[in-house]
Amino acid sequence: MTHAPRFVGWDLTDPFARAPRPVDEAIVDADGRVRFSQRVWPRAPDPEALAEAFAVGPGDVVVVDGPQALANPGAKMRDAERKLRAPGRTPDVLPLPGPPFAGFVRGGVLLFAALRAHARLPMLDLDTPELSRARLFEAFPGATWRALAVEKLGAKASPEGRARRQALLEATGLRFENAGTCTHDQLDAALCAWLGWCTRARPGDVTAVGLPLTQDAAGTLREGRILDGVPRR
């Protein structure tokens, strides 16, 4: 039985917060229709629990707003984060929750490792050199919004900023049927899903920034490229 492709975007939150917020999920079908839902972090973020809480279907292409791996030894942040001016910096060791972005970074790295190990989702560079064959990617929506916008966007949480961002995605072919007014987290998730869709339908509209993903002798994932949109001319 052939499963229709789905493109899944997740806007990660901090699973180690006192009261973790749900993760907004956007699912885009092959025709560009968007629907939203949410995922809930497991109480104990061990690999099996993470893979179960973030289960995906056969053939799903998943794009996550969250770090996929640690920096290379001796680096304070990843090459892709520096190039895309990401506010969260992933160090070369897994951070303990507490400082700003530390729980978010830890959760992202643990989630990617769990999905690769337990859901067998192939990742770019480490498992395949081709965008069209990888099924688990990282994105940084802040950079891609800048790439898509012809002019400066309003604040992402403002009504004007949200309307402009939704219009940008609609111009790429996404259809927000019965979605109402989207939150900025939903729009970031939809942007992630759109990037996944581009790896199959519009490869010329997407690029991968940063150093290739590797796995060290201890089994730790390091660096990794971030999907980004090609700037509009």
Rank of each mutant, 00 (worst) to 15 (best):
A4I: 03
F7L: 04
F7V: 01
V8G: 07
T13L: 11
T13F: 08
A17D: 15
A17K: 07
R18M: 05
A19H: 13
R21Q: 15
P22Q: 10
V23M: 05
D24A: 12
E25K: 12
A26W: 02
A26F: 02
V28D: 03
V28F: 08
V28M: 08
D29I: 09
G32D: 07
R33E: 14
S37M: 00
S37W: 01
W41N: 01
P42N: 07
P42Q: 08
P45Q: 06
E52G: 12
E52R: 14
F54I: 03
A55T: 09
P58D: 12
G59D: 04
Q68Y: 02
Q68L: 15
L70K: 02
N72R: 13
A75V: 01
R78F: 05
D79R: 15
E81D: 14
R82A: 14
K83C: 07
L84C: 09
R85I: 12
R85L: 12
A86P: 02
A86L: 07
A86K: 12
G88D: 08
T90W: 01
D92G: 04
D92S: 14
G98D: 05
G98Q: 06
G98M: 09
F101M: 15
G103R: 05
F104N: 00
V105E: 01
V105C: 09
V109N: 07
L110I: 01
L110P: 00
L115I: 05
L115N: 01
R116D: 06
A117L: 11
H118I: 15
A119R: 15
A119Y: 00
R120M: 07
L121H: 01
L121P: 00
P122A: 14
P122C: 07
P122Y: 07
L124R: 00
D127T: 05
T128G: 04
P129N: 08
E130D: 14
E130G: 07
S132D: 14
A134L: 09
F137Y: 13
A139M: 15
G142C: 08
G142H: 01
A143R: 13
L148I: 08
L148G: 01
V150N: 10
L153P: 06
A155P: 15
S158P: 00
P159D: 14
P159F: 03
P159Q: 05
E160G: 13
R162I: 11
A163S: 13
R164H: 10
R164N: 11
R165I: 10
R165W: 08
L169T: 05
L169V: 06
T172I: 04
R175W: 13
E177L: 10
N178M: 08
A179Y: 05
A179W: 07
T183D: 06
T183Y: 00
D185W: 03
L187M: 07
D188M: 08
L191D: 03
A193F: 01
W194I: 01
L195H: 10
G196S: 02
A201F: 12
A201W: 06
R202I: 02
D205Q: 15
V206L: 07
Q215M: 15
G219I: 11
G219A: 13
L221W: 09
E223Y: 03
G224L: 14
G224Y: 11
I226T: 15
R232M: 09
R232K: 13
R233C: 06
